[in-house]
């Protein structure tokens, strides 16, 4: 037990709080579920409380809310164009959820729900299926032209279309893997290095400074990965809406 507790991977352990079993499907309430709920509550509280004043000159909290709105609105406008406005609620929720669970995960003794590949893959597959459906509904059969590179002789198409198809299928995997790998690697690294702070001597002062720097790096990664996930969602949305590859 005590050896397990010190393992750098112990932080990713799923702990069941309430056992729930729905028709043979394990739907237990775990620490991951708890932190996802905390994430959503934190986002809702932050956005509703900060916008309650609705002042012309925003205060600190209101500017944070307005900045995050502007950030995503601009991202959609730049990458998708004006048709992207419709998808703002989805993209904004996605960004805020990933950002908040990455950031909350950096609080000591908390749990990072995005460090589990099933969570990130769940989000990635929703994005992938949603984007594909949007493309099919908008363009019907013409959607398939996404897999046909232009200006290629017909014989080569036999080879290139399956390749395009498979590389389209890699999108959800790479999307999920990137976020998961970054979060898991970062947290493991912090824990491993943290375990050496006292052992490295100098009363742990310099090693501690290094850990603080690493922690700052993790903060950047937490934001960056939320950004990358949403930007790629926007790019995929753009592909589905405008069909230029």
């Amino acid at each position: 037990m005590s050896a397990e507790k010190h393992s750098p991977l112990a932080q990713f352990e799923i702990k069941r709080f309430v056992d729930i079993d729905i028709a043979g499907v394990d739907a237990s309430f775990t620490n991951s579920s708890l932190w996802m709920i905390i994430t959503i509550v934190a986002i809702t509280l932050m956005l509703t409380l900060s916008m309650r004043g609705r002042a012309m000159v925003p205060g600190r909290w209101q500017s944070v809310a307005e900045l995050s709105y502007e950030f995503i609105a601009n991202m959609l406008r730049e990458n998708v164009g004006s048709e992207g406005r419709k998808f703002f609620p989805f993209v904004f929720s996605l960004f805020m959820f990933i950002l908040f669970s990455n950031m909350l995960g950096l609080i000591p003794y908390s749990f990072t729900s995005t460090s589990h590949i099933i969570v990130t893959f769940g989000m990635a597959i929703v994005v992938f299926l949603g984007v594909t459906l949007i493309g099919i509904i908008r363009h019907k059969g013409k959607f398939l032209s996404l897999f046909v590179p232009s200006g290629v002789p017909a014989v080569l198409l036999l080879l290139l279309v399956p390749i395009e198809l498979i590389s389209y299928l890699t999108r959800p995997v790479s999307l999920a893997l990137r976020l998961f790998a970054n979060m898991m690697a970062g947290h493991t690294l912090l824990k491993v290095f943290g375990g050496f702070v006292v052992a490295l001597g100098m009363f742990g002062v310099f090693p501690l400074v290094a850990i603080v720097a690493l922690y700052g790096l993790e903060l950047i990664v937490a934001f960056l990965q939320a950004y990358v996930f949403t930007v790629l969602t926007c790019l995929y949305l753009n592909d589905a809406i405008h069909l230029h590859h």
Partner: peptide, 8 residues
């Protein structure tokens, strides 16, 4: 990640 996911 692109390389790994294509292989997977």
């Amino acid at each position: 990640v692109e390389m790994i996911s294509a292989l997977l």
